[in-house]
Amino acid sequence: MSQWPDTRILDLLGIELPIIQGPMAGATTSAMVIAACNAGGLGSMPAAMLSSDQLREELKTVRQHSSRPFNVNFFCHQPPAPDEQRARDWKNLLEPYYRELGADFDAPTPVSNRAPFDSAACEVLEEFRPAVVSFHFGLPEKSLLDRVKATGAKILSSATTVEEAIWLERHGCDAIIAMGYEAGGHRGMFLSDDLSSQVGTFALVPQVVDAVSVPVIAAGGIGDARGIAAAFMLGASAVQLGTAYLFTPEAKVSASHHKALRTARDSETAVTNLFTGRPARGIVNRVMREIGPINNKAPAFPLAGGALMPLRAKDEADFSNLWAGQALTLGIELSAAELTQRLAAEALAKLTHR
């Protein structure tokens, strides 16, 4: 019998430890997912940057090496309408960097894309029938969501406000990820684009717990056992950790990102729209400092990154996204399995006063 004070997520998802490894597109590998699952937590495979065939291969690998429940995560944004003027204005803003770095300004702008959940992705889910499917930026259209539910998967999604949490419960979520403003990566906001409305984890979690009847998963600024124990005290049934797993050897991060994670100070992250067109928290670098972390010339998500690609190829540290949350200085060098089990054991000891 579990000693955790709240076992609703454990029971709902069929896992042993109330720790969810956050899905981080580009950084999460199948090895990370497998390790988190086999350690007793919930591994999460991000699908937003994978084709259907790539996703199928990743899930085959996970299934081959773990019999535990796992999560597959999708974005469900609306693709933007083309806006050639905005694209030109954005590239023109970046032209001085092209000249400085010797990048070809007149070459066609590369396409930066993150695909929303669609019927082809749903077919992969129907084939593999993962225990958990999570979404970012709300939920997909009802017909697709009904197909996912028909596979038996439990549905999770991120809320950044109480209003979003209530909406998610009303539209069929089995549990809600309360994503505080401290979290790294893309904000899950979907009912508003007003960053001033975003709430910190310690304020958000108990209010979401009070507003919904489904279990709540705390995310954002949680990097050690103290944060996990605090989340439980606030009413959460589990936590989702992203940045902590970027320090594991299973993470796929660039050399620049690896260095930044280990040298940045706690105050050196900011929410920015420069790299994708949608607010996301990362470590501050040159382009964020010089044109501002939020710039209204950045094209709509996910198009902003295209014009930065040639610059990133010349200078990765200063022109690529270095996603990280505000608790990055709590990161420790452990394998994904060791991290999952150690954090759980230390948090449980705090909660049971052992």
Rank of each mutant, 00 (worst) to 15 (best):
R187M: 10
T329V: 11
A159G: 05
K259H: 14
M45W: 03
L274S: 04
S192A: 13
A81T: 14
V199T: 09
E182Y: 01
R278N: 08
L241N: 02
D266G: 09
A238Y: 06
A345T: 14
L59D: 06
C173P: 00
F319C: 07
A304W: 14
R278M: 01
F301I: 05
G14I: 07
L93V: 04
W167G: 00
R289H: 03
R8A: 14
A236P: 01
E141F: 01
L156M: 14
M233E: 07
S51F: 05
S52N: 12
S335G: 10
K259E: 15
R354D: 15
F128P: 09
A336E: 11
C37M: 04
V271R: 01
A344K: 07
P79S: 09
R354S: 15
S254P: 08
T7G: 02
P110S: 00
N285M: 05
V214N: 02
E333R: 11
E95C: 08
D106L: 11
S30D: 02
G220K: 03
Y181E: 00
A347Y: 14
S320R: 05
I177V: 15
E16Q: 11
S44I: 00
G292W: 04
R342W: 09
R312C: 12
L17I: 11
L94M: 12
T7K: 04
R226A: 11
A81H: 07
A183P: 00
V239A: 10
A347D: 12
G172E: 03
D193Y: 01
D83W: 03
Q3A: 14
P46C: 01
P18G: 06
Q341P: 08
D118Y: 09
L322E: 09
F232G: 01
R68C: 05
L13I: 04
L339M: 11
A327V: 01
P96W: 12
M49L: 13
G172D: 04
F128M: 14
H136M: 10
A47Y: 08
A150Q: 13
R281M: 15
P310L: 07
V287E: 01
Q326N: 13
V132N: 05
G277Y: 04
I20V: 15
I291W: 11
H186M: 04
W90C: 07
A159W: 00
E123L: 13
V111K: 03
